[in-house]
Design a protein around this nucleic acid. Structure first.
Lengths: 216, 216
DNA sequence: CGAGACTTTGAACCCACTCAATGCCCGTGG
DNA sequence: CCACGGGCATTGAGTGGGTTCAAAGTCTCG
């Protein structure tokens, strides 16, 4: 296993906390785990029985086909929760994208109180997944990227500058595109003046209104 | 509204009940509603506050883009539940595909008991949606159709003969394909001897093993 | 039995993919 | 501090699977 015990050094700063944390009570009492970039948090087939809240960093949830094709079903940023599953085993993989710290909530030990908090989180995840189905099923490459950027911007507080903690390959595997297409669309949006590429993992949204329209 | 009061004539027979009903207690006391083919059960933007169990018939859940593109996120057959939402308003449309009867569970009136039953149902729906993301994001037309047929067969008890209550357009909008592609793939599977087309809405799975492999 | 809706089939096109090469960034070691 | 190396990203050229447009076929239901 790749989980490391959390030392005092890794306790997150206030800055790392999200503006709109999903509300989970009694967070201070739950254990923290640290995962270096690229390490596994849980694997498909493993026994479930906990859920997680990202303290800092970013997480990808995905499934694989036999031939290696990958579909990332969700990214989770600081403050967001993931890991609740139907049944007793995980149906997906969860990996830290970057150095990431997560707070672990055992559903069994916590008793009824915690499982009651789960429903709104599960429903939110369900809505998110179903909305993503529309993107994958019916939108073209530009619309997908636009929707992705709008979503990432919203989840980071609606600022112009958006950090993309994941690689082009991750973005492609989330949007059902290849890395080449992701790259080409970024370039096109840049050439149109809709976004600026500050660095590989950081973009500025120049025309939020245009991006919004593109994504619909 | 298109809901009609349920008369005694419409009480479903035992045959209409599913083999593996999702467990919801006290079903006998909940009101039934009947919806003719093509009618709306609820609309995006409407106030939520209930969930539903299909008594007989079939339901499609979908979203629309401004230009009319449609993504069906789920079909629900007899015995299956749908309609729980995050927040107070529906994010999706629900329509009866055929003449359909649903049992309505008000989440508010039922109190805590009902909302506790909701979590496993929500989690199951979440898993389903996330698995469908893999289909839409990473599988080609044959794989999508194969996965769809395998899923429909399982949900109908694993028999050879599978009823498809929905049109080709519905299937296309569920799988992110056009009706033409759906039709062509059905023809190809028929020519290969994997399935037989008994009628437009009824197929026989001749080679379940091949279909299974195709879908992975 | 007839009309309209749905489905199938055909032909041509196009968007995203594949394959390939170049470019860029960053970490590492000399 | 710079040179090198490796991984990731970008760009280009050509291909192909699924779409679009069009027409014929079939089923269902009044």
């Amino acid at each position: 296993m790749h989980a490391y015990a959390t030392s005092r050094i890794l306790v997150p700063s206030r800055l790392a906390m999200p503006r709109l944390a999903e509300t989970v009570e009694a967070t201070a009492l739950q254990p923290l785990s640290f995962y270096p970039a690229g390490t596994e948090i849980y694997a498909q087939g493993e026994t479930a029985g906990a859920f997680y809240q990202v303290e800092f960093g970013a997480v990808r949830i995905y499934r694989l086909l036999a031939d290696g094709r990958r579909q990332i079903s969700a990214f989770h940023l600081a403050g967001e929760t993931f890991g609740f599953e139907a049944g007793t085993t995980h149906h997906f993989f969860a990996e830290a994208i970057n150095a990431t710290s997560v707070r672990v909530f055992r559903t069994a030990s916590g008793g009824v109180d915690i499982s009651r908090q789960l429903l709104p989180l599960a429903l939110k995840g369900l809505t998110r997944a179903q909305e993503h189905l529309l993107v994958l099923g019916r939108q073209n490459a530009i619309e997908r990227i636009a929707a992705f950027l709008v979503d990432m911007a919203e989840r980071q507080g609606g600022l112009q500058q958006v950090e993309l903690p994941m690689s082009r390959m991750d973005i492609g595997d989330y949007l059902g595109l290849t890395i080449e297409t992701v790259s080409r669309v970024f370039t096109r949006l840049k050439d149109k003046g809709v976004i600026r590429l500050l660095s590989l993992r950081s973009i500025e949204i120049v025309r939020q209104d245009v991006l919004q329209i593109m994504s619909e």
